[in-house]
């Protein structure tokens, strides 16, 4: 089926792959980028858009620091190629607060001191937001299991669970009202 072959195939073998025009929708804003196909979503955020709130702790899916929401679902940005994230609605930690008003989970992270160094924190919060909206924040035990993809080497787990519980209570009361 040679007719189905995409134009890229025409490129001479061995030549440097062309940059791709990629359009990423992040926190409600469209960003047009010219990217090396190898660029991960995380590196596009950090190195190209200077949205450094999403952190890199491994680049291999093993720590959770890069967690962002894609079409409302939590994913690891380091395991996504940026070009394949085109057309998706991406939300990062920078897009969570409403202006000056922190998201309830951000506020409860401060209140509960749910971090030390703060480096895993963006990922914990984004994962926590999803954990609550998925309905997996019903008990501390549930939260622990459903947050286990986010390592905290400072060991703030106990406080993170408390912060998620607090925010879950807020969101269920606001949803009720």
């Amino acid at each position: 089926m040679p007719g189905a072959i995409s134009p890229a195939l025409a490129q001479a073998a061995g030549a440097a792959p062309a940059l791709l025009d990629v359009s990423l929708r992040i926190n409600g804003t469209e960003h047009r980028l010219s990217l090396d196909p190898r660029t991960t979503l995380l590196d596009a955020l950090r190195e190209h858009l200077h949205l450094t709130g999403s952190k890199k702790g491994c680049g291999l899916g093993q720590c959770g620091a890069c967690t962002v929401l894609m079409d409302g679902m939590r994913v690891k940005a380091c395991l996504s190629l940026a070009a394949l994230a085109q057309g998706r609605e991406i939300k990062t930690i920078e897009g969570l607060a409403q202006g000056d008003e922190l998201h309830p989970l951000q506020a409860s992270f401060i209140e509960r001191d749910a971090f030390q160094c703060g480096y895993c924190t963006s990922g914990q919060i984004m994962a926590g937001v999803a954990c609550i909206s998925e309905g997996h924040a019903g008990s501390p035990q549930d939260i622990r299991e459903w947050m286990s993809g986010n390592l905290c080497r400072c060991g703030a787990y106990d406080h993170i669970v408390a912060a998620i519980q607090d925010a879950a209570a807020v969101s269920s009361s606001t949803q009720g009202g």
């Binding site: 440097a16 196909p37 190629l81």
Partner: peptide, 14 residues
Amino acid sequence: MHPFVLERPCDLSA
């Protein structure tokens, strides 16, 4: 990472 061309075909036959 080795450089590659990224193909995003729109159907299975492609």
